[in-house]
């Protein structure tokens, strides 16, 4: 489902004397449907960078990133937009929303984009929010004022709202209490059972051991460093 083939990435900082920083080189791995792969490596090794490349958020310098039948490294913006709508979900570390939009609408939005009816999307959103223990009194409020853990759960609800066949999870269990952590891990297991291919970053080793079928050490892809 997800195939990363000899991928590299570098950043050119034009505002800082055109310094070129090479971040990844020769990254290759595959994720089959129903499997979860954990990215590991020290802070700064390029885990999030690789994740963002998979999502098309960062450009890929060379190599192929095939998700479904699209090569994200080469795809036109509208192909990536369609991929994100229909195939590829992403739970980022931080929630980014339009201010003043109610939480339930934030969670329902990915479903509405896919053409679900308003009622159907809201019902699914409410079910997810309830499962993730967001108090019902908060559903009509904007999540911008929520606590870190609550925002993270809203973000997870949004990421799991649609049944994506490929999912990217950036620290989904960080800042969660044991109960909610358990719920999120169960949701990941359910998504796997439904055939989703998942790439995740988990600093929580116990969580990683529970849901991941394999790990990829991103430091293996670290090039020489600053050139």
């Amino acid at each position: 489902m997800i195939s990363v083939q000899d991928v590299s990435k570098s950043f050119t900082l034009h505002t800082q004397g055109a310094a070129v920083i090479s971040v990844l080189e020769g990254a290759s791995f595959d994720v089959a449907p129903g499997c979860c792969v954990g990215l590991i490596g020290a802070s700064g090794a390029g885990k999030s960078t690789l994740m963002r490349m998979l999502y098309g958020n960062y450009l890929t310098a060379s190599g192929r990133i095939v998700i479904g039948d699209i090569d994200v490294a080469q795809a036109a913006p509208r192909e990536i937009m369609a991929l994100r709508r229909d195939t590829l979900g992403y739970v980022s570390q931080f929630l980014r929303v339009v201010p003043r939009v109610p939480t339930v609408d934030v969670v329902a939005e990915p479903l509405l984009r896919r053409g679900a009816s308003e009622a159907e999307a809201r019902e699914r959103a409410c079910a997810l929010l309830a499962r993730l223990n967001i108090p019902e009194a908060l559903w009509a409020l904007s999540p911008t004022t929520f606590s870190g853990g609550e925002q993270q759960r809203v973000n997870i609800a949004r990421g799991f709202a649609a049944p994506y066949p490929a999912l990217l999870l950036d620290e989904p269990t960080a800042s969660l209490d044991p109960t909610n952590r358990n719920t999120v891990l169960a949701m990941i297991e359910e998504a796997k059972a439904e055939g989703a291919a998942i790439v995740g970053i988990f600093h929580d080793v116990a969580a990683r051991d529970r849901v991941c079928d394999g790990v990829i050490d991103v430091t293996d892809f670290t090039p020489g460093g600053v050139q």
Partner: peptide
């Protein structure tokens, strides 16, 4: 390009600025 890609990984010097 895609909005989030251009803003998060800008390639041109002017966009980076």
């Amino acid at each position: 390009g895609l909005t989030d890609q251009v803003l998060d990984d800008p390639q041109h010097g002017y966009t980076q600025l």
